[in-house]
């Protein structure tokens, strides 16, 4: 790790001020991805702003029939929350499948989506549920607009995710085929039947989470495995790497979509 200054703000306002005043500073939430990055000297921040003590960023509450989850809420808290289990069980199940128990005890929702790892799980839920990302600048960014590319988001450099609002879907489920080594998603499919229609978000398969519109259209016509079978997934924009070639990923998208469909009921 390179040396850096460390700040532990007690409020969001303080954190935002520190970030605005120091363009070379980086935010630290759970740190489960960022600290390994620092350890491998892949990042050289002048300062690290630890969001871990900001009470207003943490917690789960019911809002407008859906859920609002604070940015620094731990994966384990989401996974173990009776409220999440009742309102959006698919979200609890997804959180239970992130990383490993120790990582879930530290890793946060906000950290995950702000990092936007192409193989992370939460971006699939944010897009798949049509969630809204709220920020320190008072913005509410639609999930569809938030993830802009590999490790890229719509956040401005001095903007902090404060919470995510997930509307309650009619039905939803997430199915993941993990990379055997890292356990990140080789393909993860979040599928939901919402007030706004069927949404299918795919993570792991491409440089950034995306909506599988062909699957959405097919499932909107017929919520069935047969509908998924009838869709051809274009592999040309999917990742090929040592863990999976694009055509295999394309195949897995349909398999995972069917498994999510079966789980969603």
């Amino acid at each position: 790790m390179y040396a850096f200054d460390y700040h532990r703000p007690a409020s969001l306002a303080e954190a935002a001020q520190l970030l605005a005043g120091n363009p070379e500073a980086k935010l630290l939430a759970g740190g489960q991805t960022y600290i390994p990055t620092l350890k491998q000297r892949l990042a050289k921040p002048a300062a690290v702003i630890d969001l871990g003590r900001i009470a207003e960023l943490r917690g789960i509450r019911e809002e407008a029939g859906g859920l609002t989850i604070g940015a620094t809420t731990r994966h384990a808290e989401v996974a173990g929350s009776p409220l999440v289990e009742r309102v959006i069980p698919a979200l609890a199940a997804l959180a239970e499948g992130i990383g490993d128990p120790q990582v879930r005890n530290c890793g946060t929702l906000g950290g995950s989506i702000a990092n936007n790892d192409p193989a992370a799980d939460y971006p699939a839920a944010v897009v798949g549920l049509g969630a809204t990302v709220r920020t320190s600048k008072g913005r509410s960014i639609a999930g569809d607009d938030f993830f802009t590319g590999m490790f890229e988001t719509a956040l401005e450099p001095d903007e902090i995710v404060t919470a995510v609002h997930f509307p309650k879907p009619e039905k939803a489920a997430y199915a993941k085929f993990p990379n055997p080594a890292s356990r990140y998603a080789i393909v993860g499919v979040f599928l939901a039947k919402t007030a706004g229609g069927v949404r299918v978000a795919v993570t792991g398969a491409a440089p950034c989470v995306f909506r599988a519109t062909a699957l959405e259209q097919a499932l909107a016509q017929s919520w069935s495995a047969a509908a998924i079978d009838g869709v051809t997934i274009d592999a040309s924009n999917l990742n090929s790497d040592i863990h999976a070639q694009a055509d295999y990923r394309a195949h897995l998208i349909k398999v995972m979509a069917k498994r999510a469909l079966a789980a969603a009921g």
Partner: peptide, 11 residues
């Protein structure tokens, strides 16, 4: 349970 190599002492 937490991995102490993924947490700053300051945290």
């Amino acid at each position: 349970a937490v991995k102490s190599c993924l947490v700053l002492a300051a945290q």
